[in-house]
Amino acid sequence: MHKNFWIVIVNYRTADLVVDCLQSLETQREVLGGGKVVVVDNDSGDGSVGRIAEAITAHGWSAWAEVVAAPRNGGFSYGNNVGIRLALSADPAAAWIMLLNPDTVVRSGALGALREFMATHPGVGIAGSLLENPDGSVDCSAHRIPSALGELEGSARFGPLSRLLREHRVSDAPGSEAHPCDWVSGAALVMRREVLVQAGLMDEGYFLYFEEVDFCCRAKEAGWEVWYVPEARVMHLEGASTGIRKAAKRRAHYWYDSRRRFFVRHHGVAGLILADLLWALGRLSFLARRALRLGGKPGADPKWFMVDLLWGDLRAIMSGRVFALRGQAVEFPFL
């Protein structure tokens, strides 16, 4: 049976970025086979649906692209699930589904490289692209699972400790060859249909952030491999759609909610507490070194980072809300 390639793009008030992304896909549309690009608008309320629909019609993209209006803004997982359900219900031959951020430009040959890799590596359930920054540098998009020791390494920012805990560092320097990893960035990843059948859809309990980490972990638990494929190059204007890299801003509460959800679901409540304790230890050592002028270069930290992270988790534990996160199931709706 012929196999089709689908792409899901979730939009929230970034219509111009979506059009640029679609433009980058136009010359690669043959890779889709009988698949399509589905743009899911998460109830933007700013005319995005009409603007994207007009662009699709004006550029003659209607044969391979469409925009769908979701009834509410349920977050990144929710929007992706809307598109995934549409692809799977509309096309029995939908073999691969790619999640693509609206703030991306897909380089020539990237879709073909991903499709070829998935076709020739049947044990791989999820593959992620190489992500370029606008200045041409390469960002890390292949990662290790977040852990308590990884939280210590990341918050301490201390060279000797980082070398000691290298195997627990979440994000290393980008590799130049394809290799397996724990999870890949949700900005540009492709999944196999069978992964969805076995591991379920994306967990809509994550509004934004950590959803792809959770999804990759569940795929691996189901026996699938996760790989990084640098031959598939995608430029990512990271933060253009979410503002995550604006250090001066106070980080949105849902980032902390998502981090908490991930640690509880994959490490338990005790794992969350241990991660917070080690994060705080590393953070305090970093601040002490800075105060004593013994190193500790400032990073792109949001305002009130330490307070929001630790106090938010403490409140969730004291209220009992954190214990409700442990057993929530993620169902696949087509079984």
Rank of each mutant, 00 (worst) to 15 (best):
R13V: 14
Q328T: 15
H2R: 13
A58E: 15
A63V: 11
G295V: 10
A187S: 04
P102A: 04
G186Q: 01
D313R: 03
P174W: 02
F210V: 05
I145R: 09
A252Y: 09
P160Q: 12
R169F: 15
E132Y: 08
A178I: 04
E30I: 15
E211V: 06
W183Y: 15
I273G: 10
R144A: 13
G136V: 15
A63M: 13
N80V: 02
S141T: 06
L17A: 07
A240F: 13
P134E: 11
D135S: 14
A95H: 11
E151S: 12
A156K: 05
I126H: 02
F158K: 02
A219P: 11
D43L: 09
V330D: 11
R115Y: 02
D41V: 04
D308P: 05
V106I: 09
W61D: 03
H59W: 14
M98Q: 05
C216L: 15
I9T: 00
I52G: 00
R218W: 15
A94R: 03
G47R: 10
V124Q: 05
S285D: 11
D257S: 06
L149E: 12
L277Y: 11
S89E: 11
D41F: 04
F5I: 03
L292M: 13
A55K: 02
S77A: 10
L111Y: 02
A65T: 01
R290W: 05
L208P: 01
G159V: 03
G296W: 03
R29E: 09
E212M: 11
L161E: 03
R193S: 07
K3W: 12
C140H: 10
R51K: 15
S241T: 13
G243A: 14
L208H: 08
P146D: 09
G60E: 15
P302T: 13
V226N: 02
V197C: 09
G125H: 07
N80W: 01
A300H: 15
V40M: 08
G75R: 00
R289K: 12
A142M: 04
S137P: 08
F323N: 07
L272C: 04
F323Q: 06
F332E: 13
F210W: 15
H179S: 13
G150F: 07
A110F: 03
F5V: 04
L281A: 12
E153C: 13
H267L: 05
Y254T: 12
H267E: 04
F76M: 06
Y256M: 04
M306T: 14
Y228C: 01
I84M: 00
G154Y: 05
G299N: 11
H236F: 06
V184M: 06
D203K: 01
A187Q: 03
H236M: 09
D301Y: 09
D214E: 12
H121T: 02
L325A: 06
H143N: 08
R245Q: 11
G50E: 14
H121K: 06
H121W: 04
S77W: 00
M202N: 06
S62G: 14
A93F: 07
P122E: 06
S155K: 05
E225K: 13
S108R: 15
A188I: 02
G75V: 00
L277E: 10
R29A: 04
G299I: 14
V190Q: 01
Q28W: 13
V105Y: 08
A188W: 01
E26G: 10
S241A: 14
